[in-house]
Amino acid sequence: MKESAIMRTAKKETSIIIGLYILFFAWWYLTAYSFGDDPSDYRYILGFPEWFFYSCIIGYVGISVLLWICVRFFFTDIDLEEKKEGREND
């Protein structure tokens, strides 16, 4: 059977979600571990150590905004009841 259009949409959206997830992981890892681990060299932003500010605060705010943008522009509304599609094998 040919894949329904709805499932194709769902698969596309899943790929976007996994992409965002990997992006969040990469940002989390890179910012957390690339500012050195000697506290006496730390610089501070808004009172927080630099690594913490970028990975925990910017990371969180950033992914929330990116997600909102992706959902707003790339996610399609579908009819979950499938009344319009008229599946033959129901």
Binding site: L20, F24, W28, A32, F52, C56, G59, Y60, I63
Partner: peptide, 8 residues
């Protein structure tokens, strides 16, 4: 940092 893994 560990707890933020749960954001997604």
């Amino acid at each position: 940092l560990l707890s933020m893994i749960q954001v997604p």
